Computed example of a mutant assay.
Amino acid sequence: MTGRLQRLTTIQRPSIEFMFDGQPVSGLQGDTILTAILSHRGALREAEFGPEHRAGFCLMGACQDCWVWQEQGRRLRACSTELQAGLRLRSKAPDGWVS
């Protein structure tokens, strides 16, 4: 699946490398995690209770649609968390994770 987002203009910002579901991914400095991931993939994660895919909904941190997890278990809102180099993120909660 190709990326859901396409940049409309070339932006000269440094590239930031991170890992998502064990795969190397890159975004641009100033991107949110959601923007960086959706530039490469069609969805952020699978829904918890059905076959649908999630790609963010409100884009302002009020819903539950854009959660991702750091490999250590911390949950982040992808729509409002700025991308940082070296992040190791997952689309699914780690085994044993409790909210």
Score class of each variant (00 low, 15 high):
A55K: 11
A62N: 10
D65N: 13
R13N: 11
I37H: 02
T10R: 13
S39W: 00
W97C: 02
L44Q: 05
E46W: 07
P51E: 14
D21H: 08
S15R: 14
L5E: 01
E46N: 13
R41W: 09
V68H: 03
S80A: 12
F49Y: 14
W67I: 02
Q64T: 14
P94R: 04
E52F: 11
D95T: 09
C58Q: 06
G50W: 07
L76S: 08
L44M: 09
G42F: 05
Q6D: 04
G27S: 06
L87H: 02
M19N: 12
E48L: 14
G73D: 06
Q64R: 12
D65M: 08
T81H: 11
G73A: 10
P94L: 01
D95M: 04
T32A: 05
E46Y: 09
G96A: 04
S99N: 12
L83F: 08
Q12P: 00
V98D: 10
A55Q: 13
K92P: 00
I16S: 02
W97H: 15
T2P: 12
S80Y: 00
G86Y: 10
H40Y: 02
P24R: 15
A55D: 12
M19F: 10
R74A: 15
G96R: 05
M1W: 06
H40W: 08
A85N: 08
I37K: 03
G73K: 04
Q6I: 11
R90N: 13
L83P: 08
I16D: 01
E17A: 14
M19E: 13
D21I: 03
E48D: 14
D31P: 03
L38M: 06
L76G: 07
L34P: 01
Q29V: 01
H40F: 00
G30E: 09
E48R: 14
V98C: 07
F57N: 11
F57S: 13
R77G: 00
